[in-house]
């Protein structure tokens, strides 16, 4: 099976006042077409750095080693100009806080259009049509009217829908979702997860889902990579990792998930 994304021995090093520090060490994983791979870990574990490395968006000064191949093409060591054509066109990304991730000064329609126009030759009219379709696809009601609205005029869940519409407007092969549901409340979280799963089924996009929340991972990912302090502590299929975690850290993470049969009062569990 040809892998969509193959990350091999990825190491990311930052220069600091006390010498270089590896924030990610020898991480390897693959993502197949139409597959979702979860990267789990607490904050500072290097999971976001790993996803930014795929996009070529690491902060200045970061040094990467190893290999990141997207659809068989090596991404590490590519120039900024080449990476720009990868971003949005082949791989795109959605982020944790959709409000601060959208530019408050421009309408959501324009922000989707400009992404489309960065990669496709077309006029504004056509791009606007595509943007409205994209908004409709992610379940924004009255998309023609809403395209003319600003990010602050949307609710949190809708903003993340806008982000998803934008990320998928050029039909990328890979979608990286960096904690996309963390800032949302639980019912909205479930809606966004369902939307992502539905869209994936329709488009066949491979997905990297970064989160600190194992419960979310279990509902969406087929394979799981567990990271801690920049190192890969566990990697396997979701069933494997959840049923028989090999590493003590994974067991600890699993145990930290609140369970229904814990000592919660009955009225808090209904919904």
């Amino acid at each position: 099976m040809s892998e969509l994304l193959a990350v091999e021995d990825l190491t990311i090093t930052f220069p600091t006042g006390r010498g270089p520090v590896d924030v990610v060490k020898d991480v390897s994983f693959t993502v197949g077409r139409n597959e979702t791979v979860g990267i789990v870990g607490e904050s500072g574990s290097g999971k976001s750095m790993t996803s930014l490395a795929v996009m070529g968006l690491l902060p200045r000064g970061a040094v990467t080693r190893g290999s990141i191949r997207l659809d068989g093409v090596e991404l590490l060591g590519r120039g900024e100009g080449e990476m720009r054509r990868v971003r949005g066109e082949q791989a795109s990304m959605i982020f944790q806080d959709p409000l601060s991730s959208l530019n408050p000064y421009y309408t959501v329609g324009l922000q989707i259009e400009e992404m489309y126009r960065a990669h496709r030759r077309c006029g504004r009219q056509e791009a606007r049509k595509v943007a409205v379709e994209a908004l409709a696809q992610v379940g924004i009601p009255e998309p023609e009217r809403r395209a003319g609205h600003y990010p602050h005029q949307f609710s949190g869940g809708q903003r993340q829908r806008v982000m998803i519409a934008m990320a998928l407007v050029c039909s990328p092969k890979l979608l990286i979702a960096d904690e996309p549901t963390t800032a949302l409340d639980v019912t909205v979280q479930a809606q966004i997860l369902r939307l992502l799963a539905d869209l994936q089924r329709e488009t066949g996009t491979g997905m990297v889902f970064v989160t600190h929340d194992l419960a979310v991972i279990s509902s969406i990912a087929t394979r799981v990579l567990v990271m801690r302090r920049g190192e890969q502590v566990e990697y396997g299929t979701a069933e494997q990792v959840f049923a028989e975690p090999r590493h003590a850290y994974t067991r600890m993470l699993l145990e930290s998930i609140p369970r229904i049969d814990d000592e919660l009062p009955a009225d808090e569990v209904t919904s």
Partner: peptide
């Protein structure tokens, strides 16, 4: 939002 804009390939 600048990170988002960069991730869009502008």
């Amino acid at each position: 939002f600048m990170r988002t804009a960069r991730s869009k390939g502008l």
